[in-house]
């Protein structure tokens, strides 16, 4: 159980650990079922960190939760599949088998993991609960592995295991979340807004740790965030979500350098930066759509898009590979010219 921790990153093992295909998640509302995620496709490969960026209401957290088939009611996965290597289609699982996958093959660090720990139990007790619910026989081995992970993240393991969540700082709680996600040897690590409530120095430390455990365990990692800076620090691949759709997807560095979707371009342009001309930065006009204001026909971004034209009103652009390895869903020219 402990070997995986020491194993150096396997060389170029880029098989897909998770492949999401054509996934649509709908929420039941007064106005009928509205899509929070529409026909999304994404692959998480071992040894790769994928960053999923979007604003609130873009469907990024819903997409991440559907990897566990854990979309809360009144939402449900309407169509599509989530294939996890060695497990099968998670959307078809239920009951005990589904519970075993959650936390087992798929480690999930929840948004504000500060609040996802039980305030009435020490971290160690919660670790044992986790082990029992996953029918781990060797609970001592589990504690040993948790200790190693915790030490690896620069925590005083014994102190942490004996602590209640309020005795730990935000950065420490986030690390505990990662320990609990990985202690059952998950192959896939999903982090939802891992650094949102942290200050800069803790954020940098947590990102360092994510990078290190990712590399050492050859994980397939997904980081869901609204912060371009976080993604650019750690991600190998970058997917941008807007209005429930993945609108751009490709190698992180290339997307940051040459964004091809007007939304990606605007999002980078709207990021407060530590260098450069502050007057050049621009907020996007309008507001991000939510379920009820989402356009039902045409491109979901057209209302805020500087390049919108007649075709955007009628046709929802599909995500296509416009140049090898890079995907975008836009009618306009990738360089930013009008169609």
């Amino acid at each position: 159980m402990t070997e995986t921790l020491q194993t150096p990153a396997a060389t170029e093992d880029r098989s897909a650990e998770v492949s999401v295909r054509d996934l649509t998640v709908v929420y039941r509302t007064d106005r009928g079922e509205l899509p929070a995620v529409s026909r999304a496709g994404i692959e998480l490969r071992a040894g790769e960190i994928t960053g999923l960026v979007g604003e609130s209401g873009s469907g990024k957290s819903t997409l991440a939760l559907s990897l566990l088939n854990a979309v809360p009611a009144p939402g449900r996965i309407a169509s599509g599949s989530v294939e996890v290597a060695g497990v099968g289609d998670v959307t078809k699982l239920e009951g005990k088998r589904l519970r075993r996958v959650r936390g087992g093959a798929l480690g999930y660090v929840f948004q504000a993991s500060q609040n996802s720990l039980n305030p009435l139990k020490t971290v160690g007790k919660q670790l044992l609960d986790l082990g029992r619910s996953h029918e781990v026989e060797d609970l001592q081995g589990l504690v040993r592995r948790a200790r190693e992970l915790a030490e690896r993240m620069g925590l005083d393991a014994d102190r942490v295991l004996d602590s209640y969540q309020h005795e730990l700082s935000g950065g420490m709680r986030q690390r505990v979340g990662i320990v609990l996600a990985l202690v059952l040897n998950a192959r896939v690590l999903i982090l939802d807004e891992p650094t949102t409530a942290l200050d800069m120095i803790s954020q940098a430390a947590v990102l360092d740790i994510v990078r290190a455990v990712h590399r050492e365990n050859n994980l397939a990692t997904l980081i869901v965030t609204h912060d371009m800076g976080v993604v650019s620090e750690v991600a190998d691949r970058l997917a941008v979500m807007y209005g429930g759709r993945i609108v751009e997807h490709g190698p992180a560095l290339e997307v940051l350098q040459r964004p091809s979707h007007p939304y990606t371009r605007a999002l980078i342009g709207a990021t407060a930066r530590i260098v450069g001309d502050t007057t050049r930065a621009r907020a996007l006009p309008g507001r991000p759509p939510d379920l009820t204001t989402l356009a039902t026909t045409g491109c979901v971004f057209r209302d805020r898009c500087p390049l919108a034209s007649a075709v955007c009103e009628e046709e929802d652009p599909a995500l296509v590979e416009w140049t090898p390895g890079r995907y975008r869903a836009c009618h306009a020219d990738p360089t930013g010219d009008r169609p």
Binding site: G154, S169, I201, M228, G229, E233, L253
Partner: peptide, 23 residues
């Protein structure tokens, strides 16, 4: 130093510094 660098558009500063311990 802890401010994330927007790779591709920015490069890390030359003298980046990390504190020796946590607070």
């Amino acid at each position: 130093s802890a401010i994330p660098v927007l790779r591709g558009i920015e490069e890390p500063g030359p003298d980046r510094l990390v504190p020796l311990a946590s607070l």
